[in-house]
Simulated assay, not measured.
Amino acid sequence: MDKVVDTAAEAVADVPDGASLAVGGFGLSGVPNALITALHERGTTGLSVVSNNCGALGTGLAVLLAARRVARVTASYIGANKEFERQYLAGDLEVELIPQGTLAERLRAGGCGIPAFYTPAGVGTQVAEGGLPWRYDGRGGVAVASPPKEVREFDGVPYVLEHGIRTDFALVRAARGDRHGNLVFAKASRNFNPLAAMAGRVTVAEVEELVEPGAIDPDAVHLPGIFVRRVVPLSPAEAADKRVEKRTVSA
């Protein structure tokens, strides 16, 4: 039951080229930077990434993206990541943009063994009708477009069919975790980390504070250890390294 692995490098040593990854984080909050850095140092490439975004300010998934280790991204938005935008528009990267709530539910559904579900989000748009540019040809044209999705009416209201997401691995970051893999997430980092963890067939969690089993009240557990295969304790310096994307100050 002891799932602790000494180093991030050891924890991701079996992630092969071409693997699919669900990666937690919301903006710069709750991003598994140590695990991502370990993947970068290992040289893993051709990755298909499912995450809320693809990193920013040269951190998180932006490290893998800049090194051209990512082949496909399933995300909610591009945000302020200029390299993400450049590779997408140049045709170097395939990108599937999904409404944020739908992405969250697709990850949750995959983790719960639900193959698909109907949602009103996207009905009457290219999300349902198809034609969203997944890959550009580098000359302003679309090389690969999204296919149309099934739309069905329930009680006179149209809904679009969305498929659950399962990935080979998941990388997440938690504020606290025990040796059995039970995790607690802090504030905004709880948005996508639990869902990404559920979607991965092999889930690896880096934790800011490692505690012994029983130290976390069962009612406080955000993600039970059944979803987690490996736990990596962060050093105090790694745990304290938290970037701020935008600072707002008053005069």
Rank of each mutant, 00 (worst) to 15 (best):
N191C: 07
A143T: 08
G79M: 09
V142R: 06
A121W: 00
A188S: 13
L223E: 02
Q126S: 10
R247P: 02
P120F: 09
V63F: 04
G18S: 13
D17H: 02
P133M: 10
Q126D: 06
A186D: 15
L57T: 04
V70D: 05
S51V: 03
A62K: 05
G164T: 03
R201Y: 02
D241V: 07
L61V: 12
A251L: 08
E105Y: 01
A62L: 03
L57E: 14
E129M: 14
V23N: 02
V228Q: 11
R69S: 13
I165C: 02
F26M: 15
G27Y: 11
A9F: 08
L234Y: 08
N193C: 11
T7R: 14
P158T: 09
A116L: 12
E105I: 03
V160A: 12
V232G: 13
T248S: 09
T102R: 01
L183S: 02
L65I: 10
V95R: 06
T7P: 11
G181N: 10
A75V: 08
S189E: 13
F185N: 07
V231C: 05
R247K: 10
D178N: 10
P158H: 08
R230F: 08
S76Y: 04
A239G: 02
V207N: 13
A237C: 01
A199N: 08
S76A: 15
P99F: 13
V73D: 01
A237S: 09
F192Y: 14
I36P: 04
Y77R: 11
G130M: 09
V5Y: 03
V231G: 03
G131V: 12
S48M: 00
L57H: 15
T248W: 12
V157D: 07
V23S: 05
N182Q: 06
R230V: 07
S51N: 03
R42P: 02
L93A: 15
A128I: 05
E129Y: 07
A66M: 10
V31F: 05
I78V: 15
I98K: 02
T74G: 09
Y88V: 04
P32G: 15
E162K: 00
L223S: 01
V202H: 07
G214D: 11
V207T: 13
V123N: 06
K187L: 14
P233R: 10
K246N: 13
S20L: 05
S235L: 00
V5C: 06
F185P: 05
D168G: 15
Q100V: 01
V144P: 07
L161P: 06
P213E: 04
H180I: 04
P32M: 14
S29L: 10
E96H: 11
V4C: 03
H163M: 04
V172P: 03
L28G: 09
D219M: 14
L132S: 11
S29F: 12
E208N: 12
L103D: 05
V5T: 12
A66D: 13
